[in-house]
């Protein structure tokens, strides 16, 4: 039995977001939505995290940062792109400094749409990520 899905700890990274999506991510932690009831903890530490939640697009400056955080996370891990910007660049897509969505540099598993993404959608994305986490940890333990 895998416990990965019962205790998804996440790290939230703000790429070049307008902060709209970040506020919605934090709203998930408030008493109204309370994601901790699913065991979700916002760790802020890549080494403790299972889910990498990214808001905002990727630019030249944060490209390395995002990769670094991803590499520091122990597997199994899942990447969730939150908001239009993280999915494909959103309204900043045409900007000279924006490279595009998160999938330009990382293998994104779950895309959460919306501008800003609604807390319900984010929770839905996290729940999907959790199911994927289970699958990944199963395939890892079989691979052993």
């Amino acid at each position: 039995m895998s416990f990965a899905s019962k205790s998804p700890w996440l790290i939230h990274y703000d790429g070049s977001s307008c902060n709209g999506c970040d506020i919605e991510v934090l709203a998930c932690l408030t008493p109204v939505y309370d994601v901790e009831r699913f065991g979700v903890i916002n760790t802020g530490n890549p080494k403790h995290a299972d889910i990498f939640l990214i808001t905002g697009g990727i630019n030249k400056q944060n490209e390395e940062v995002v990769k670094q955080i991803y590499d520091q996370m122990p597997s199994p891990k899942v990447v969730v792109a939150v908001g239009a910007c993280a999915c494909n660049g959103g309204i900043f897509k045409e900007c000279y400094n924006i490279m595009g969505g998160v999938d330009k540099v990382l293998p994104v598993d779950i895309y959460v749409s919306g501008c800003a993404a609604r807390p319900e959608a984010i929770i839905d994305g996290v729940v999907k990520a959790v199911a994927l986490l289970d699958e990944k940890s199963k395939s890892i333990s079989q691979g052993r």
Partner: peptide
């Protein structure tokens, strides 16, 4: 808040033991 289930710490620790240790 509603809070996590009472057994949450056990889920957490079992998960930690099944994860890769860097």
């Amino acid at each position: 808040r509603k809070g996590p289930p009472i057994l949450q710490p056990f889920y957490d620790i079992f998960k930690l033991f099944s994860k890769e240790a860097i």
